[in-house]
């Protein structure tokens, strides 16, 4: 498959996951309206579009779409990374990076770190296996236990993972727009700024929850 097509697969699957991240982040902010609001939101996600779709139906559709997007994203990344490796069999003895941002250089390993975090995150707050409380449906209590000051190591891991996501999104969003041909000499700087602001807002939205819990604001 041509590399350009793989880039479209990468960009489209990334866009699907990014849209989910935005909705996820906005949903998380329900915690600032109280424990009841967060738990009710979680329950609503399961009764959404009932009775047209069965209980949790929408949630399962989202999960399937995300899984397909994730597989497509990782698959295209692996194929492209292998081609990149094959394209330079002999390395330079001396070549410092000059232009590529930190975000651009860490896309591959950053992606692996994010994938590992997602596994932990699902075991923590979806299945409850690794959560100190882990009671299904008691979303506020689970989150509060997770980010309690005594459970600080989970908070630190969460913060680092979210920042990694932000760095990944900063390059990924701009790169995706470039891949879909939305970039030209006039818009390039604006698109890069947009991606940076977008990533910063996403990170801020996700970090608001653990910080609010740790410092007792909610």
């Amino acid at each position: 498959m041509p590399s350009v097509v793989l880039k479209y697969v990468m960009a489209a699957s990334g866009a699907a996951m990014l849209l989910y991240l935005v909705l996820h982040m906005l949903g998380n902010l329900k915690i600032f309206f109280g424990a009841g609001a967060l738990d009710a939101y979680s329950a609503w996600l399961r009764t959404l579009l009932e009775p047209a779709v069965p209980y949790s139906g929408v949630l399962w559709v989202i999960r399937v779409v995300l899984t397909v997007a994730l597989v497509a994203h990782v698959w295209s990344a692996i194929v492209l990374a292998r081609r990149a490796r094959a394209a330079r069999p002999v390395r330079y003895t001396h070549r410092p990076p000059v232009q590529g941002s930190y975000a651009a250089r860490t896309m591959r390993w950053g992606g692996v770190i994010i994938a590992l975090f997602v596994v932990y995150h699902l075991l923590d707050l979806t299945t409850g296996t690794l959560n100190p409380i882990g009671v299904h449906g008691e979303v506020y209590d689970n989150v509060a236990a997770d980010f309690a000051p005594s459970h600080w190591y989970a908070t630190i891991f969460y913060v680092l993972a979210v920042v990694t996501v932000g760095i990944h999104v900063r390059h990924g969003l701009w790169s995706g727009l470039q891949t879909f041909g939305r970039s030209n000499a006039r818009t390039q700087r604006a698109l890069k700024t947009f991606a940076l602001v977008f990533a910063a807002l996403l990170v801020a939205g996700f970090l608001a929850v653990p910080f609010a819990v740790t410092f007792g604001l909610v």
Binding site: K7, R83, Q99, A104, M107, S183, A185, Q188
Partner: peptide, 24 residues
């Protein structure tokens, strides 16, 4: 290989071809 939009190419280009030609 495939492009990852790092921009190293446009920086190295002796004729300053802009990165947006890849978007084109």
């Amino acid at each position: 290989g495939g492009c990852t939009n790092t921009g190293e190419c446009a920086d190295a280009c002796p004729k300053e071809i802009p990165l947006d030609v890849i978007s084109q």
